[in-house]
Measured scan of single mutants.
Amino acid sequence: GPREVTMKKGDILTLLNSTNKDWWKVEVNDRQGFVPAAYVKKLDSGTGKELVLALYDYQ
């Protein structure tokens, strides 16, 4: 199956793709996968990378 990404509340993840309104593709610890968009919030990183903050645990 697809590689699952797990996250804990407060984690910072790299946002790869947010074109789908329900599932965003993120990368964390060299793993890529989809997380519910409602579970993360975009951060203003000030760099080229888009980052998101995990609002809830997800696994």
Rank of each mutant, 00 (worst) to 15 (best):
G1K: 12
V28T: 10
L43R: 01
E27T: 06
R31L: 12
K41D: 07
R31F: 11
R3L: 13
F34M: 07
A54S: 04
L55F: 03
T47S: 12
V52D: 00
V52S: 01
N17W: 06
S45R: 09
R3P: 12
Q59T: 15
A38I: 10
G46E: 12
A37M: 04
N29P: 03
V28G: 06
F34V: 05
G10K: 02
V26F: 01
G48I: 07
G33A: 11
A54F: 03
S18T: 09
A38P: 06
V40Q: 01
D57T: 05
T47I: 11
Y58N: 01
A37P: 07
E50I: 13
K49G: 08
D57S: 06
S45M: 12
K21T: 09
D30M: 08
A54E: 00
Y56D: 07
K21W: 05
P36D: 03
V28S: 12
K41E: 14
R3Y: 15
N20K: 05
V35H: 00
S18K: 07
I12S: 02
V26D: 00
Q59P: 15
E4T: 15
V26T: 01
D22F: 14
V40G: 00
Y58W: 13
T6S: 14
L15P: 00
L43K: 02
D44A: 12
T47K: 10
W24S: 01
Y39H: 08
V26Q: 00
K41S: 09
K21M: 08
F34S: 03
L16E: 01
T47N: 14
Y58M: 02
T19Q: 10
K41V: 14
N29T: 05
M7D: 01
K9E: 06
V52I: 06
L55G: 01
L53V: 14
F34A: 02
K25E: 14
N29F: 07
A54T: 03
D11H: 04
D44K: 12
K9V: 10
N17S: 13
N20D: 13
S45N: 13
Q59A: 12
A37L: 02
L13V: 06
K8V: 07
V28F: 15
Y56A: 11
W23V: 03
G48E: 11
L51A: 06
S18E: 11
L51H: 06
Q59C: 12
V26E: 00
V52H: 02
T47F: 11
K49A: 11
K9Y: 04
K8L: 07
D44M: 10
W23I: 03
S18D: 14
Q59S: 15
G46F: 11
K41P: 03
R3H: 15
T14K: 10
R31E: 09
F34H: 05
D30N: 12
Y56I: 10
K49E: 11
E50V: 13
E4G: 15
W23A: 01
L13I: 06
G1L: 12
G10N: 04
L51K: 09
V5Y: 07
D22P: 01
N17G: 06
D57E: 05
D44R: 10
K42E: 06
K8Q: 08
V26K: 00
E27D: 05
D11G: 02
T19V: 09
Y58E: 01
E50K: 10
D57M: 03
S18W: 07
W24F: 06
R3N: 14
Y58H: 03
L43F: 10
L53F: 06
Q59G: 12
D57K: 03
F34R: 03
D44P: 14
A37Q: 04
G48W: 05
K9F: 05
L13K: 00
P36I: 05
G10D: 04
P2V: 12
V26P: 00
D44G: 14
W24M: 03
A54P: 01
V28P: 00
K42I: 13
L53W: 04
L55V: 06
D11I: 03
V28H: 13
P2L: 14
Q32H: 09
V40N: 00
L53D: 00
K9G: 04
K25S: 07
D22H: 15
G46I: 13
Q32W: 15
Q32R: 09
D22M: 10
Q32F: 09
L51M: 11
D44H: 11
K9R: 11
A54D: 00
L43P: 00
L53Y: 08
D30R: 07
Y56W: 09
N29L: 07
M7N: 00
D44I: 12
V52Q: 00
L13D: 01
P36F: 05
L16N: 02
Q59M: 12
K42D: 03
N17H: 06
M7L: 06
G1S: 12
V40D: 02
G33L: 15
A37E: 03
D22K: 12
L51N: 05
W23C: 09
K9H: 05
L16F: 03
D30S: 11
T6C: 14
V35M: 02
D11M: 11
G48D: 13
M7T: 02
K9P: 05
T14N: 07
V35P: 01
V52T: 02
M7K: 00
K8G: 04
T19G: 08
K49S: 11
D11Q: 10
T14Y: 09
Y56M: 12
G1F: 14
T6M: 11
W23R: 02
R31C: 10
L43T: 04
G48A: 10
L13Q: 00
T47R: 10
E50R: 11
T47C: 13
E50W: 09
N20H: 10
G33I: 15
R3E: 12
V40S: 00
G46Y: 12
K25P: 01
R31S: 11
R31G: 11
T6Y: 13
A38H: 13
G48N: 09
E50M: 13
G1N: 12
V5C: 06
Y58C: 02
N17D: 15
V26I: 09
V5H: 04
R3T: 13
K42N: 05
D11L: 03
R3S: 12
D11F: 04
Q32I: 15
N29V: 05
M7Y: 04
K25F: 15
N29K: 08
N17V: 08
K9T: 07
M7Q: 01
Y39A: 13
L55C: 05
N17A: 09
D57H: 04
P36W: 05
E4N: 14
P2H: 14
L43D: 02
Y56E: 11
L16Q: 03
R31H: 13
T14A: 08
Y39R: 06
L53P: 00
L15G: 00
E4Y: 15
T47V: 11
M7F: 13
K49L: 12
W23K: 01
K42Q: 08
D22W: 15
V35Y: 01
Y58T: 02
K25T: 07
T19F: 09
D44C: 15
S45H: 10
T19S: 14
N17I: 06
N17P: 04
L55Y: 03
K21I: 07
A38K: 15
V52G: 10
E4H: 15
T6E: 09
A37R: 08
W24Q: 01
I12T: 06
L43Q: 04
P36H: 04
P2K: 12
A54V: 12
G46D: 14
V40R: 00
T6W: 13
N17Y: 05
E4V: 14
G1M: 12
D44Q: 12
D30C: 10
W24T: 02
V28N: 13
S18V: 05
A38F: 09
L51P: 01
L13P: 00
G10P: 01
D30L: 07
P2T: 13
T14C: 09
V52P: 00
E27Q: 12
G46R: 09
M7C: 04
I12V: 10
D11E: 07
L43Y: 07
R3Q: 14
A38S: 15
L43W: 06
T14W: 09
R3F: 15
K42L: 13
A37D: 03
N29I: 05
W23M: 04
N20M: 07
G48Y: 07
E50C: 13
L55M: 08
K41T: 11
V28I: 15
V40L: 15
E4M: 15
I12D: 00
G33T: 08
L51T: 08
K21H: 09
K8M: 08
A38V: 08
E4C: 15
Q32S: 09
N17L: 07
K42G: 04
K25Q: 12
P2F: 14
L16K: 04
D22Q: 10
S45P: 08
K49F: 10
V28M: 13
